[in-house]
Structure formats: structure tokens, C-alpha cells
Design a protein around this nucleic acid. Structure first.
Lengths: 196, 196
DNA sequence: CGTCTATTTGAATGTACTCAAAAGCGGTGG
DNA sequence: CCACCGCTTTTGAGTACATTCAAATAGACG
């Protein structure tokens, strides 16, 4: 039961549930343990779940024609993780989702999500709010990629996600911000010099 | 009444409404005519509506520190237009939304939207689907900005929105794709030469 | 401790930008 | 209906931000 407490809190921040509703909601989820370096989503397979991270961290990335990979999302505790497009539309994934540490997640199967939404309009509201926030989040990222230089994007990232900086590998952050690992390294090094 | 037909069709593609529901839905909207170059959203004002475009076209853009503007969205018939973040969270806008042609829109006030969602779970579902598609759309754009070169992004745009290419000014397309007008002009010119 | 992976460093290169000026185009008024 | 004005697009030269490639160093894990 206590495994589900963080998820219930998470949902209650967005809509307010009775105890029975909370019970019903979390009951749709399945606890899963994932080892470091294990993939929970791979290209060409239809993602059957979206997952709420209880413990650990994940990286979502795509690989382009040249074999370079680009981080689409990083997830830690209290975040969700999936190949958004593919999960929502139940199409074959185009992304990899890999655990960066040993992790524990709560998985919601796509059909269970449909049942929840059909069963109670409150749940429908919850997923609507989730989607809106996701869209808002993505849009902010688009704006930052259009308006900022590589160094500014990194500064922005530092400010918004100070905790992620020390937890995620450099190459993940660099490719999330749309630059090479080498260039991010140079930016960081320049900053260290400036401070002294 | 027939003014609302395209909107009803639009909604019915995503959820199915009875006639009475369709009536109730569109009744929340207000028809507005907008002259070319007129702004329907400006920074610092809280956007009171989101708008469905019946006729005409709009450009949504932000202006950065250096005074350069970046197109966030372009909208034509059967699309929605707003400053997404600001409308959803009812915060002061950070974007400009301007009519590129004389246009006709159906405006939905934020409080009316809340009433619709509260009145009928189907409407809640509709807005959830809208938000999901918006998020999916934004994510595709993030991926293209991370993985493609300027020329590839333009090719991609040509393929996805052949109709917009001839209707939108070059500078709008260029800044939507994250490049300068000059550079897009050079890309286009290079293609013309190749063809001959 | 040794191996594998991640990060740093440097030099050469490239993609896309800046700035400036010319050309093209469309709308408006005489 | 033409001529002009303002805005958009084109063109070119010089430049900058960020990449590529290669090699060295540091760090993590078994």
C-alpha cells in the first residue's frame, strides 16, 4: 500500500480524490523493478504502459540516421516516463527508454488507463491535466531551442533542474539540450575557470 | 448556424456528439472577425480565449532579447490558435498572435471551457484528446529540431504542410523552423538550381 | 587492479548567422 | 491603371558558434 503513496499524492495535487477513488486509481497500476541498463521500451514494439517513477531514473532517446542519439526526456522520482507519441496512439515505438539506475516504477497499461477514464470523469480530468502540462512543458523546450544559445540552454537547465545535473550523465544532458558532449564539456570548463 | 459546422465536424472527428450536445458545445463559442495585422493576443495580457480558425490565418511568435522573433505556431482553417501556456494556466501571455490575413475565428472563453468540461465528461474527453495531440505534435517538433539539419527540417515541412508553404511568408516559415530568412532563401534557391 | 565507459582537450572544419545592399512584390493612392 | 512606397526575399562576403575527429585523462564497476 505505502508503495502507492507517492502516486496518490501526485494525483491529489491535480485533482482531489476520495480514499475509495485513490484506491481504485492505484489499483490499475502494477509495480515493477527495473535493473540499471534495462530497456522498458524499444523501437518497433508498441509500448503497453506508461510508467510513474517511484525510485531511480530513466532516459528516453532516439537514434538518428547517423547513429547519434538524442535525449528526448529524462525522468526521476515523481515523473512519468514513456514514448509519449507511441503510447498515446498505440503505435510502434520510435524511442528507447532505458533505466540509468536500478529503479522501481508503477506501470499503467493502456487498456487500464482507458478503463479508468471511462469509469470516472475525475480520472479523465487527471489525464487531461497531465497532457496539458506535457504540452506546456514541450512548448517551453521548443521556445528555448529557438531562442537560446547552447550556453544559455545549459544555464537554463542548471536553474530549472539543479538536481538532475549531478544525477544524469553529461552525455544525456548534452543531447537533451541539443549539443555534443564535447561542447557541453567546454562550456562547463569555461564556467569553472571564470569562477576562480 | 452553418458558421459552426466546421467546428462541429472537427469535434465529431474526435468524440461523437448528439445534436443537442453539438449545439451546447458550439454555443459556448463567439464568432469574431479579425483584420489582417490585428493582434488577438499580446504579451502581458492574460489570454481570455482560445480560438478555432474558420477562415484566414495566424502567426504566433515570441520576441527574444535581441529583438529577433521566433514563430511558435502558424494556424489556418480548422486549427486552433492561442498562447498555449498562458491560456491554459491563465497567466500573462509571452507571445504575440497576429492575423496574417482578414480572418474569422470562433473564440472560446476560458471560463466557458471550464463550464463545458464540468457539464459533460465527453467535453472533458475532447479537451484531453486535444491536449494529447498538441503534446504529440510538439514532441515531433522537438525531435526534428534535435535530429535534422536546417535543410532537412525544411524538406520535412514541405512534405507535411505543402499548403502552408505557399500561404505563409518565408520569414514565418524560416523562424518556425529555427533558421534565418536569409538561410532559408539560400536553401530554396539551391533546390531550384538542382531541379534544372 | 584492470577494463570499460564517460569526460576532457585541442585542432581543423562546417553549418548557419550577421550585416549590408539589391531586387522583387504587393498594396494603395493619385 | 500606373507609380510609388514599404515590406519581403535574394545575394554575397565575412564571421561565429558549434561540430567532428582523434587522443588523452578521469571515473566507475566488477
Amino acid at each position: 500500500m505505502s508503495d502507492f503513496a507517492p502516486l496518490i499524492d501526485h494525483v491529489n495535487k491535480r485533482i482531489s480524490l476520495t480514499e475509495a477513488e485513490a484506491e481504485e486509481f492505484v489499483h490499475a497500476f502494477k509495480l515493477a523493478k527495473v535493473k540499471k541498463r534495462q530497456f522498458i521500451i524499444q523501437p518497433d514494439f508498441v509500448p503497453r504502459h506508461r510508467s510513474y517513477v517511484l525510485q531511480g531514473s530513466f532516459r528516453v532517446y532516439v537514434v538518428d540516421d547517423k547513429g547519434q542519439d538524442h535525449t528526448i526526456q529524462m525522468s526521476v522520482e515523481d515523473w512519468w516516463v514513456s514514448d509519449y507519441n507511441s503510447y498515446i496512439f498505440q503505435k510502434p515505438a520510435t524511442m528507447f527508454v532505458v533505466a540509468l539506475e536500478d529503479s522501481i516504477i508503477l506501470q499503467l497499461a493502456h487498456e487500464k488507463e482507458q478503463e479508468l477514464k471511462a469509469a470516472n470523469p475525475k480520472f479523465e480530468t487527471f489525464f487531461r491535466i497531465m497532457a496539458e502540462r506535457t504540452a506546456a512543458f514541450f512548448q517551453r523546450r521548443i521556445i528555448s531551442s529557438l531562442t537560446l544559445t547552447a550556453e544559455q540552454r545549459y544555464d537554463d537547465f542548471l536553474e530549472k533542474y539543479p538536481l538532475l545535473v549531478n544525477r544524469m550523465p553529461q552525455y544525456a544532458i548534452a543531447s537533451y539540450l541539443g549539443m555534443t558532449t564535447e561542447f557541453l564539456s567546454k562550456i562547463r570548463n569555461k564556467k569553472v575557470k571564470k569562477k576562480s
